[in-house]
Amino acid sequence: MQGVAIPITMVAGDSYIHRLNPLPKLFIALGVLILSFATRNPLVLGVVFALGLVFVTAAGIWKSYLRVVGILFPISLTLVVMQSIAPAFPRPWTPITDFGPFTIYQEGIYSGVSMLLRIFSMTTFALVMIMTTHPSDLFTSLQKIGMPYVLNFILTMTLQLIPILQNEFAIVLSAQKSRGMKGSGFGAVLPSMVPVFVGAIERVQQLSISLESRAFGSTGIKTSFRNVTMSLKDYVIMVLGVLATLATTVWVIADKSLDWSRTLIFPPTLSIIIVALAAIGFVAFFILAISYVLRA
């Protein structure tokens, strides 16, 4: 019953990245987010993604990272399939080959592959940030740079609620199974969502009462128990990180030669293989996921 939970939460550790102040991590993750949206060039995105993996290694969070990727990757594969046959790209599209009743377009497969890389470069940095930062430290740091208290609270609360809900879902599912839950597919799993959501709403209701009874809405300057200091090193890393992502963003926007959508030619056979593998990967994942959830 443990298997269902995918903790998108802090992974305890004492790596260099863990010890870094939350702000540089947050700003670099944001910078990468902007950069990833600024370009479709697979090489640039691929390099950013590879750099992200270097940080995953440095932080020593491969195990937790792979668990998230294990879910995210197959789902993102749908993008490759959908994009290839219906590109989110200005027409005219260049057909490469027929794939059953569909036509695979050059722009589509380019856009699909780059979207996949985009998602991964973005989420890798975001995950490194989330998995190496204590939620309270993030909270305190955001507070310091003037994030409104309530907004800040909502953000960190949500981050903390995710693992709780996952855990809850696992318990509810096991309760259903111990009453002999029959059937497979979403139809069978869906009823388990009811107690999870009712529980979540109840929890939030109680939380709000408890918060108010502890003077949540009071005005005045709030102090914090956790103290997060920003060393010179943190500043340097933050400034360098922001400059690097910004400069790259400007470069990828300015340099028109990076638009490879019509020059990076996918041969027909390769295109079919990519699209077919993506489709098979997703369907296999879907079947596996459901049977896994329903397994005792």
């Binding site: 809850e168 318990i171 509810v172 309760a175 259903q176 009453r179 009823p191 388990s192 009811v194 107690p195 009712v198 529980g199 109840e202």
Partner: peptide
Amino acid sequence: NPNHQLFA
């Protein structure tokens, strides 16, 4: 916790 069990 009965909340974990009831859903109908």
